[in-house]
């Protein structure tokens, strides 16, 4: 119980720190806008665009994390995405990753909740890789602008390299945590 309370305090100070970070960046933003008035319009319109994008997608991403947290047990995550999940686990990671969950930065909180529930580091890396460059809706745009051959090649070699990356990074990160 006590430990729980301490963790909450710790979390709180972390959250406060992160909001101080926001203030610093807000000051930076205002500073840049004042110093470079000729850039003001572009900066403001681009920021607004991404801000709206975030507002549209963030509630769903958070609810997605909530649904996952409440309905999928640790045992299930470990079974399907854990160390023993093998090729099937990597395939599942790619499929979840290719779902439309918005820009890559939205995938980090999702990946982190997967990791906490028992997914292996390999599958987390594969998931993030798929989130980044194997999104299904974006695939339609890619098909239209780059053609089927480009897309097939890029997707197949991306899958191979993402899995390879997962293996290597998992090893490196394990060695690191063993050292400590």
């Amino acid at each position: 119980m006590n430990g729980n309370k301490m963790m909450n305090e710790n979390d709180k100070s972390k959250i406060i720190k992160s909001y101080v970070g926001v203030l610093i960046f807000a000051a930076l933003f205002i500073g840049v806008v004042i110093l470079f008035p000729e850039r003001k319009d572009t900066i403001l319109s681009e920021s607004t665009k991404y801000f709206i994008e975030m507002l549209l997608i963030i509630p769903s991403v958070m609810l997605f994390i909530g649904l996952f947290g409440a309905w999928i047990s640790k045992e299930q995550t470990t079974k399907y995405l854990g160390k023993e999940s093998g090729t099937k686990g990597a395939l599942i990671a790619i499929i979840i990753g290719s779902l439309p969950t918005g820009p890559l930065y939205m995938s980090f909180p999702i990946a982190s909740s997967l990791l906490k529930k028992g997914a292996s580091m390999l599958n987390i890396i594969v998931f993030l890789g798929a989130c980044a460059c194997l999104k299904i809706p974006q695939g339609l745009v890619e098909l239209k602008f780059m053609g089927i051959r480009f897309m097939m090649l890029r997707w197949s070699f991306s899958i191979i390299l993402i899995i390879l990356m997962g293996y290597i990074l998992e090893k490196l990160l394990e060695e690191y945590s063993n050292d400590n």
Binding site: G21, F29, Y50, M54, I58, M106
Partner: peptide
């Protein structure tokens, strides 16, 4: 949210 807001500020600039 705070981290995403920081991300948006960096992207905007």
């Amino acid at each position: 949210v705070p981290y995403i807001m920081i991300t948006i500020v960096i992207i905007g600039i």
